[in-house]
């Protein structure tokens, strides 16, 4: 039974990891750039939620009403004012840029909030559980996280397949030069895509902050999990993040079962195995550009 309980917990943990990976998969899938500050932006989202809940006296989940539009705007500005300047020079400028930004965010958070670990509070939600059997119960919050990521994936899939803007996102990912001939400004598309990624980062930050405590330097560890998720799921594949997250989560809880010290290690080993067997991930989506 232990194995069954560990897998259920792993799947639930995978919901949070899928959220980590989703924002990164979006930026890589559409812009073909790598955001090394992704983890720090998630932590930034958690801190911003903390500020909003304190200033407005809202519960943490309600802070999303403010955070999602604010982060969308911030993402759009970030892409249009900063990242778009590095377009067409290959992948390196964006890596250097976001690496620098990662350092800036960490230290800005440290200066503003000190190095103390913080938590978001949602009252009872964090301790509520659903009993599955007599001696096994699953947390409501982890279940909710998994449901949120599934709803997000369904919504994104609908958006990419059935709206004009969604199709424009995919066409821009395929070929930003030809898309301009169709009257689409790839720079504007990129701005909207980054806005969308930031809105998802806001959601990720809130759910992470509800689940675990966080501190200014937690970003890089989140980034590694996000990378592992998209490596397992397939670089740039939006739907692949769910499988990637679940595999990573289950690998970690299984490792934990053997020995608690293997918790992180077994996740990394699972990622390496996928890299060795299927280097482009389980569901490779992005098509190689010429």
């Amino acid at each position: 039974m232990d194995i069954f309980y560990a897998s259920v917990n792993g799947v639930l943990l995978g919901g949070l990891y899928a959220l980590y990976g989703l924002g990164l998969a979006l930026t890589f899938g559409i812009m073909r750039t790598i955001n090394l500050a992704h983890g720090d932006m998630i932590v930034f989202g958690s801190f911003m939620s903390l500020v909003v809940t304190r200033v407005l006296g809202l519960p943490a989940l309600a802070s999303l009403v403010v955070l999602i539009p604010a982060m969308f705007l911030l993402g759009r500005l970030f892409q249009e004012r900063v990242m778009n300047r590095s377009l067409g020079e290959g992948i390196m400028p964006s890596i250097i840029l976001t690496f620098g930004l990662s350092v800036v965010i960490q230290n800005a958070l440290l200066l503003t909030f000190s190095a103390d670990r913080q938590t978001l509070s949602a009252g009872q939600l964090q301790t509520m559980s659903l009993p599955l059997t007599e001696d096994f119960a699953i947390g409501v919050l982890p279940l909710m996280t998994l449901c949120v990521v599934i709803v997000l994936l369904i919504a994104l899939n609908w958006f990419f397949r059935h709206t004009m803007l969604g199709r424009a996102f995919r066409a821009t990912s395929d070929d930003p030069e030809v898309v301009a001939l169709m009257g689409i400004d790839p720079r504007r598309t990129y701005g909207l895509a980054m806005g969308l990624a930031f809105a998802i980062i806001a959601i990720t930050g809130v759910f992470m902050g509800l689940r675990t405590n966080f501190a200014p330097f937690d970003g890089p560890a989140r980034l590694i999990f996000a990378f592992e998720v998209i490596i397992i799921g397939g670089m740039g594949s939006i739907q692949g993040v769910l499988i990637g997250g679940v595999i990573l989560g289950v690998a970690q809880t299984m490792g934990n079962l053997v020995n608690p010290a293997f918790f992180q290690l077994s996740g990394h080993v699972a990622t390496l195995l996928v890299l060795a067997i299927r280097p482009s991930g389980l569901f490779p989506e992005t098509i190689e550009r010429d």
Partner: peptide
Amino acid sequence: FPSLTVDE
């Protein structure tokens, strides 16, 4: 656009 259908 290779990943889009003919319709798209």
